[in-house]
Write a protein that binds this DNA or RNA. Sequence first.
DNA 1: TTTAATGGTAAGTTTGTACTTACGGTAAGT
DNA 2: ACTTACCGTAAGTACAAACTTACCATTAAA
Lengths: 109, 109
Amino acid sequence: MKKQATSSYDKAFNALGDPTRRAIFEKLRVRPLAVVEIADGLPVSRPAVSQHLKVLKDARLIRVHREGTRNLCQIDTRGVLAMRNYLDNFWDIALAAFKQAAEKHKKHE
Amino acid sequence: MKKQATSSYDKAFNALGDPTRRAIFEKLRVRPLAVVEIADGLPVSRPAVSQHLKVLKDARLIRVHREGTRNLCQIDTRGVLAMRNYLDNFWDIALAAFKQAAEKHKKHE
DNA sequence: TTTAATGGTAAGTTTGTACTTACGGTAAGT
DNA sequence: ACTTACCGTAAGTACAAACTTACCATTAAA
């Protein structure tokens, strides 16, 4: 797990750390949505959503492309993958620890 | 992806959203550590670390058990697994979308 | 060209939270 | 018994950031 000046997973975890941004992110799971559609139903204003989208985009968790006057947003797998890889590191260590414990237990029986 | 009153991944993402807590979490990747050892090297005070550990513990990202006067902390895979499962949902959707796009492209050639 | 729809940004406020110091409490050495 | 090491919690502060309203820009439709 190399440590860079600012890791790719760094911004991603920070982005999904906010419940409103998670709500936005989950909305996009169904299908790509315009900014208005995202804001609709959420308990915050549209400008707030715009600010959140900027954070998500910067974290590579969403992609945005214009379609006429609309800004269509969709999930970007790069951020998701970065977080997954990060978590896998800890998963591996846990498995190794478990394995070691199992070996030790085997010795004692 | 079922939605509960307060999801298991909810607290986990919130916990790892903070850079100091990520630093603590990463320190534990090597081996279980006491609170003092965790605080050592970090740019924050020991009480601050204690408060962070509480959040991580509540998110099921670490386990704590006393050993004499020391409180040994180690990584809890339950929180890690919860986040992994959450991310996998989006991963699947992305794969499906990609697959659909590939099919569409195939039709047009 | 006017009107309506979409949405980004600026500026200011407010709230949450990540910190600090101070204190008390427990367990293990001496 | 005293001292030392380890640690959690309370109380208060300071700063980050999640909001708001107001405004302007762009594009499409009337």
